[in-house]
């Protein structure tokens, strides 16, 4: 199939490999992963700093910031997970023919 390729396509493939081999060597190097990690940490720090400024400003006006919504979302997910676990346990017991034991009053 490669033999039937037009010349321009062969040239593109050859150029891509010429550049690609070097790029691939770089993106699999220790330097790249160190840069990636440093970059990720730096951008996270910048984002956190920006968030803390905007949060303070929004709280001044008694408005929720995105971090408040996120925290709420996380709490909701935890509740949902707990509920799902309970529901699964009840279902499993029902499937196995056992009835869930009623909780003793405290």
């Amino acid at each position: 199939m490669a033999q039937n390729q037009p010349t321009w396509l062969k040239l593109v493939h050859r150029a891509e490999r010429a550049v690609g081999d070097h790029v691939e060597a770089f993106v699999t190097s220790d330097v790249y992963f160190d840069l990636l990690t440093q970059g990720t940490r730096a951008s996270r720090r910048v984002l956190q700093a920006a968030e803390s400024v905007s949060r303070e400003w929004l709280h001044l006006w008694n408005l929720p910031a995105s971090s408040d919504v996120r925290r709420l979302h996380e709490q909701l997910s935890r509740v949902e997970r707990t509920l799902a676990d309970v529901a699964k346990e009840v279902n499993d017991r029902a499937e196995n023919g056992a009835r869930p034991k009623p909780e003793k009053p405290q």
Partner: peptide
């Protein structure tokens, strides 16, 4: 894993 491959794929 192969960041430039897409160029060749688009040409193809």
């Amino acid at each position: 894993l192969a960041p430039t491959k897409q160029v060749a794929q688009y040409a193809t």
